[in-house]
């Protein structure tokens, strides 16, 4: 019998993806422009934030996205999260995504913490029963047990981020997107977040990580994507990618 290796499962397939933005938000727009759709012409007042980006991510890989500010890192994350749509090419994501992007985005000021947990987790695709089961764990992780029925707006900003991180990271989705959320919170909680991300990685989740922090990148990621001027210039082991980034932009050692 021949030992057949199972084909690796592709979680994220990005092929020739591009997205463009207007340079000038207040620029004039005509109805004709609006309906132009996804043609490939580029207009003078627009620029491509990403173009011709192609890569695939297999299940369980952890990817670090590297690049200077404004080179398309967060945009790439948003395409994978499905909160933006590519103008050309395709972004195919198999399975659900737990996006640690603007994590407090779905929380409503006037509702209690409890209602907010059910709302946000629910919008990300958890059923009420799953949330019931997981609820105490989420609250314990965020360390805000006494504030369950407090309106969200009355929490301190640290607590807001903690509960939001706790909820999104409790989603049982195969893909986890992390966009520099770890820059917030106090040191103790940050370390807790790190541990949770490591647990998720160990559990075989696919990790997609955007950071400027070299240590974090080397700690969490196996593979790096280096974005420069909206193009994918290097796709390789994280150490190679970080080294090249340092060569080009980093502080000379």
């Amino acid at each position: 019998m021949v030992d057949v290796q199972p084909a690796p499962v592709i979680d994220i397939a990005v092929s020739d993806a591009g997205i463009r933005f207007r340079r000038n938000r207040r620029g004039r727009r005509s109805f004709k422009d609006l309906f132009a759709g996804r043609d490939r012409r580029s207009r003078p007042d627009e620029f491509w934030a990403l173009r011709g980006v192609t890569f695939t991510v297999r299940q369980g890989e952890s990817i670090g996205v590297v690049g200077r500010n404004g080179q398309g890192k967060s945009t790439l994350l948003k395409l994978v999260a499905g909160v933006m749509i590519a103008d050309e090419g395709a972004v195919d994501v198999t399975g659900g995504v737990a996006p640690l992007i603007e994590i407090t985005g779905g929380f409503v000021d006037d509702l209690s913490v409890r209602d907010n947990v059910y709302l946000t987790a629910g919008l990300h695709g958890m059923t009420k029963r799953m949330i019931d089961e997981r609820f105490d764990e989420m609250i314990a992780f965020a360390e805000i047990g006494d504030f369950l029925d407090t309106p969200y707006k009355h929490l301190s900003s640290g607590m807001k981020v903690r509960i939001a991180f706790s909820v999104i990271s409790s989603l049982d989705e195969p893909i986890v997107l992390v966009d520099e959320v770890l820059a917030v919170g106090d040191k103790v909680f940050r370390e807790k977040c790190y541990r949770r991300i490591e647990e998720m990685k160990a559990a075989g989740r696919t990790l997609f990580f955007v950071s400027h922090n070299e240590r974090d990148l080397r700690r969490f990621c196996d593979r790096g994507l280096y974005l420069d001027k909206g193009a994918l210039v290097l796709d390789g082991p994280i150490d190679d990618v970080v080294d090249r980034y340092n060569d080009e932009h980093g502080i000379k050692k």
Binding site: L123, G125, E133, E199, A203
Partner: peptide
Amino acid sequence: MTSYGDERPQWTPASRYRHALRLL
């Protein structure tokens, strides 16, 4: 961390849509 195992809900686009609509 616990995992939900088999009880992950099998969302169809329509049921997911209704779920979100109801929540909002």
